[in-house]
Amino acid sequence: MAGITDNGKEHQHTITALVQNHPGVLARVAGLFARRGFNIESLAVSVTENPEVSRMTIVARGDDRVLEQITKQLNKLIEVIRVVDYVEHSAVERELALIKVNAEPKDRSEILQLAEVFRGRVIDVGEKTFLIELTGGPDKIDAFARLMAPYGIREMARTGVIAMARGTKTA
């Protein structure tokens, strides 16, 4: 019998937890991750179609055993109704980013074209900046941010991933 070691292969997982919409439930989830030494890459929380239920979408890294522990420990929280690890399901993942990028007059048309390719929208035009809104999977946003970097990103905010299974399947 071998002990559980960390040499398992690390994966990024998107986990959705449906939780009772009580005050303090976010603290319980965040505290659990901190105390058990699980790393959160992103966390998005909002109310669902049922106002008594909130949906937390957590992106975390770890090997299979770590991720299994995360899921099990989440399930142990009294206020957690259900936990789904999307690694086994076909799911759509999206996040929204707001990027404030330097936009000198000479660069503007180029930036606009790039934003167009990524289906981003310029939602505020300043004297020296564009504020661009972009939705997509994390890879797409990473790629766009890389392209914007040479112009100078002044500020970026990302919501963190939210996810949903394809088809009729629900969390």
């Binding site: 019998m1 071998a2 002990g3 559980i4 299994e68 522990q69 099990k72 420990q73 142990k76």
Partner: peptide
């Protein structure tokens, strides 16, 4: 009785 204990430390 606690599913989280299974596989927590050993296989």
């Amino acid at each position: 009785i606690d599913p989280a204990e299974i596989g927590k430390v050993v296989h």
